[in-house]
Amino acid sequence: TTFEIRVGDLRITLHNADEEEIRWAEEALRRGIHADEILRTLEERRR
């Protein structure tokens, strides 16, 4: 599944994310964390 998060002009697309990952990514985007860093962190958490 694919889920797109939008916060203002910012956007990130997550693939195969669970609800916790989606909530975490949305909050991180709101705090101004760059999408590349969010994706990198999620990848590390999945390992």
Score class of each variant (00 low, 15 high):
T41N: 08
V7P: 00
H34T: 14
R23K: 11
E44K: 07
E19V: 14
R30A: 07
I5E: 15
R46N: 07
T13A: 02
F3K: 15
I12M: 07
R45K: 13
R11K: 14
R47D: 09
R11S: 14
R46G: 06
G8D: 03
D9S: 05
L10F: 07
L29A: 06
T1G: 15
L29H: 02
E20C: 13
E26M: 08
E26K: 10
R45C: 08
L39N: 05
E26F: 09
I5Y: 00
R11Q: 12
R47V: 12
L39W: 07
E4I: 03
E21S: 10
R45M: 13
E26P: 00
R11G: 06
I38D: 00
T41E: 12
L14Q: 00
G8I: 01
R6E: 15
I22P: 00
W24M: 08
T2R: 13
T2Q: 14
E27K: 08
T2D: 15
L29P: 00
A35I: 05
I38Y: 01
A28W: 08
E26T: 14
R40V: 10
E20V: 12
R46E: 05
T41D: 12
I38Q: 00
D18I: 12
R46C: 07
E20A: 09
L39E: 05
L39M: 08
T2K: 11
T41S: 12
T13V: 12
D18T: 14
R11M: 14
L42D: 01
T41G: 11
D18C: 11
F3L: 15
A17Q: 02
R23E: 10
D9I: 12
L39P: 02
E19Q: 13
E26C: 07
H15L: 04
A28N: 07
I33T: 13
E4Y: 01
E20P: 07
E4W: 01
R47H: 12
H15F: 11
A25V: 13
G32C: 13
T2N: 15
W24H: 03
H34Q: 13
H34F: 13
T13Q: 05
T1A: 09
R45G: 09
D36K: 07
I22L: 06
T13S: 04
R40E: 11
E21A: 08
E43P: 03
I33W: 09
R46S: 07
L10A: 14
A17Y: 02
L42W: 02
T2F: 14
G8W: 00
R30I: 11
L14T: 01
R30V: 11
A28V: 05
D36M: 11
E43A: 13
I5S: 02
R6N: 14
R47T: 13
E44L: 09
E20S: 12
E21P: 01
A17H: 03
R45A: 13
D36F: 10
D18W: 06
I5M: 03
